[in-house]
Amino acid sequence: MQLPVLHRMLQQAIELAASKNSSFDSVCRREEDVERMLAEVRAEKSVRGGSAQSANELVSALQEQIRRHTADTGPKAGTGIAEEPDSGDPPCARAAVSQAIREFLLEQGEATTKEITQHVQKVLPSVNVKNTSPELTNLVKQGLLVRPRIGVYRLGGEWVRTEHR
Rank of each mutant, 00 (worst) to 15 (best):
M1T: 15
L3S: 12
L3C: 05
P4N: 08
P4Y: 03
L6M: 13
M9A: 13
M9W: 10
A13G: 15
A13S: 06
A13R: 11
I14P: 11
A17C: 03
A18G: 02
S19C: 12
K20Q: 11
K20Y: 07
N21E: 04
N21V: 09
S22C: 07
S22F: 08
F24D: 13
F24K: 05
V27W: 01
C28E: 00
R29F: 03
D33H: 02
M37W: 05
R42C: 04
E44V: 02
K45Y: 14
S46M: 07
S46C: 08
V47C: 15
G50A: 06
A52Q: 14
Q53K: 13
A55D: 07
E57Y: 12
L58H: 06
L58T: 13
A61W: 08
A61M: 14
L62G: 12
Q63S: 13
E64P: 00
E64M: 13
I66D: 09
R67E: 13
H69Q: 06
A71D: 12
D72H: 04
T73R: 05
T73H: 10
K76M: 06
T79G: 13
G80E: 10
I81H: 03
A82Q: 01
E83R: 12
D86S: 09
D86V: 15
D86P: 01
S87H: 04
P90T: 02
P90D: 06
A93P: 00
R94Q: 05
Q99H: 12
Q99L: 09
I101V: 04
I101C: 09
F104K: 00
F104P: 00
E107T: 14
Q108I: 03
T112F: 06
E115Y: 12
E115I: 01
Q118R: 05
Q118V: 12
V120P: 00
P125H: 06
N128S: 09
N131R: 08
P134A: 05
E135T: 02
T137I: 10
N138R: 08
L139Y: 01
Q142E: 15
P148S: 07
I150S: 11
V152C: 11
Y153K: 06
G157S: 02
T162D: 10
